[in-house]
Amino acid sequence: MVDEKSVSASEPLDLIRLCLDEQIFVKLRGNREMTGKLHAYDSHCNIVLGDATETIYYLESGSEDVKSRKEKSELVFVRGDSVMSIADASNIGKTNA
């Protein structure tokens, strides 16, 4: 079922639709990033990611260096108000591998 409507990308959210079932990279508020497979989204940028890996950046007290830790989740809903940007992960490559 490939009609014009489902292929065209005329507005920003259409780009998210094209990422459905793909690996995506999401930048989040609170110094967080997440990669995972996009299973669902809505107009608020609420999203559901499968096999997600979250990276949290933080400062240890008394140190200037930014550290990071990772957390995994098999299936997670992310509230849209935390989402700053969404990108196709295949275009980015691994961050901080």
Binding site: K5, D14, R17, H39, S43, V48, G50, F77, R79
Partner: peptide
């Protein structure tokens, strides 16, 4: 911030279809 879900209780294919349908409806 997040709601962690049990993957066994969610059909991700249905979710993707529902997302497409909602996108379609709003456009």
């Amino acid at each position: 911030r997040y709601i962690h879900l049990n993957p066994n209780s969610v059909d991700t294919n249905l979710l993707q279809d529902a997302s497409r349908r909602e996108a379609m409806a709003s456009s």
